[in-house]
């Protein structure tokens, strides 16, 4: 079955599965978002930052990337921590 516990995933592969899918999603999200919103109309609180349009796209891209990377990381964490094993550990600590 798909039991990946007990198996050591190298750090490099962990990075790939977290950063790479989120990278692809970030490209799609950036494309969708900025085709709907023009960054030059987007400064909501009259922010006093000097940032050009390309800068805004870049920033948006990295925000999307970070958000999806967090999601990927949580998914990876859930996938490699075996719930049954945690359960077994806990019951072995109980008195019965």
């Amino acid at each position: 079955m798909n039991d990946m516990s007990g198996m050591q995933i190298p750090f490099r592969q962990k990075c790939i599965v977290t950063l790479w899918p989120s990278f692809m999603i970030a490209i799609v999200a950036t494309g969708l978002f900025f085709s709907a919103f023009d960054p030059s109309e987007l400064y909501p609180y009259n922010l006093d930052i000097e940032i050009n349009v390309v800068g805004a796209y870049t920033l948006g891209f990295f925000i999307f990337w970070a958000l999806s990377a967090i999601s990927s990381a949580i998914t990876l964490y859930f996938a490699i921590t075996n719930c049954r094993k945690i359960h077994a550990d806990q019951s072995s600590h109980s008195p019965s």
Binding site: M1, N2, D3, M4, M7, I9, P10, Q13
Partner: peptide, 13 residues
């Protein structure tokens, strides 16, 4: 690809 053996080899050095 869900086969653990294949996963092992996929993530091999």
């Amino acid at each position: 690809t869900a086969d653990p053996k294949i996963q092992q080899s996929l993530y091999a050095r």
